[in-house]
């Protein structure tokens, strides 16, 4: 199961603080096992997902 959430950072500031979000978009993968800052291309996001999943 893949859960993909768009999170409005100012409304959910506690969550944003938890992950120290300072710029957007910023994608947190599996509770910070991986990160992708910026609107990254599909291949780059996938590479980061792979890294996070293999940890």
């Amino acid at each position: 199961m893949i859960l993909a959430e768009g999170v409005e950072a100012t409304e959910f500031s506690a969550l944003a603080n938890q992950y120290a979000i300072s710029g957007v978009p910023d994608t947190v993968i599996n509770n910070d096992a991986g990160r992708a800052l910026g609107a990254v291309p599909e291949a780059q996001l996938l590479a980061e997902v792979r890294r996070a999943v293999e940890k």
Partner: peptide, 14 residues
Amino acid sequence: SLEKPLHLQVFVTP
């Protein structure tokens, strides 16, 4: 092929 759940949280602002 993923065997475990994957959670992506994309933080955004308006």
